[in-house]
Amino acid sequence: MMDVSLGELRVRQVAELDLALPLDAILPGIGGEDLARLKQWYWDDALSLDPATAQCALSMHSYLVEIDGKKIIIDTCNGNHKDRTMPFLHRLTTPWLERLGELGVAPEDIDMVLFTHLHVDHVGWNTRLEGDRWVPTFPNARYVFGRRDLDYFSTTEAEADLSHQEAFRDSVLPILEAGLADIVEEDAVLHGASGDGVWLRPAFGHTPGCCTVHARRGGPPALFSGDILLHPAQIVRPDLHTSFDRDEALAAQVRQALIEEVADTDTVIFPAHFMQGAAGRIERDGEGFRYRLVGETPPAAA
């Protein structure tokens, strides 16, 4: 299980489930040349070079962040027993809570719950089923919602996103009703100071209020990228939008800017859906970019 310490910051992964979906359905426009470039460094040896047959391997997981004695959960996956339009997410029964417990952490220990955005696979463990009611999973935590996404998913404009509306009703509304929600702007500082604590940055496009979560304490910075980087192929082709992006052009601009900003720095990326506990760093690779996992040995200098 992934366990990364960056100075006085500790990040561990809480896995829920893995999925494999048709890659060309998730990343429309991906081509064989893109897959060949990805294959040069990608850790999934089973990746096909044919866009028509290639599978998009995705991990659903949360991050447990520990800083200054506080325990923070970032993105809460899908949750159990929930009615979902997407069949592969319908009424799951995963051991996510047990895996959190294996880290020595109980739901009551969580101080804060953060979200990169409010899609179905990022809010589900906000609540658990108790009898016939959805109750907060983390009763002592403050759940921090970005204002723009909360406003969007509260409106009829979002009702076409049925699966996300289902999640809003059973995984967000109960938190609001319980009085455990803090509603903030997407550039809010949540602990300490910007650059030395935990803070948000706007990254609109994937959803109207999508943001990145940042943390740092005495070591390299951690960047929780959410679905700005859904799959490693988007490091090879930052312009590749996903079928889930609401504003495809804006999402691509945000992704390109993020990659340019962090490339060849000590920033450690914690993606929302990369496989293999895939914390890593983005590096320049000729005219493009590549991703190197934490702990992966760089090639020897020529």
Rank of each mutant, 00 (worst) to 15 (best):
H119L: 14
T212A: 06
V189M: 06
E186M: 00
T207A: 00
P136E: 09
R217G: 00
F168Y: 15
G131A: 08
E157A: 14
L173D: 01
M112F: 04
T116E: 09
A158D: 02
G146K: 00
E185G: 03
T212N: 11
R201G: 05
L129R: 15
L118P: 03
H191L: 15
P208C: 08
W125Q: 11
P174K: 10
R142V: 12
L114C: 08
R169F: 12
R216Y: 04
S171P: 00
F204H: 13
R147K: 15
H122M: 14
H122A: 14
G195D: 02
R142F: 01
T156V: 15
G209N: 06
F138C: 04
F138G: 02
R169V: 13
R217Q: 14
L180T: 02
Y143C: 02
D121C: 11
G209I: 05
L114G: 06
D161W: 13
L150D: 07
A193P: 00
F145T: 05
R216A: 12
A181H: 09
T155F: 00
D151R: 12
G131R: 10
T207L: 01
A158H: 02
E159F: 03
M112P: 01
D182N: 03
A181M: 09
D111E: 09
T127P: 04
Q165H: 11
T155M: 11
G195S: 10
N140W: 07
T155Q: 13
L162M: 09
R128H: 14
V198N: 03
V184D: 02
T116C: 15
H122T: 13
A181N: 07
V189T: 15
G131C: 09
T156Q: 12
H206G: 02
E177M: 11
E166I: 02
A193F: 01
V213F: 00
V172K: 06
T212V: 12
G197Q: 08
L190A: 06
G179A: 11
V135W: 11
G131W: 11
W125C: 08
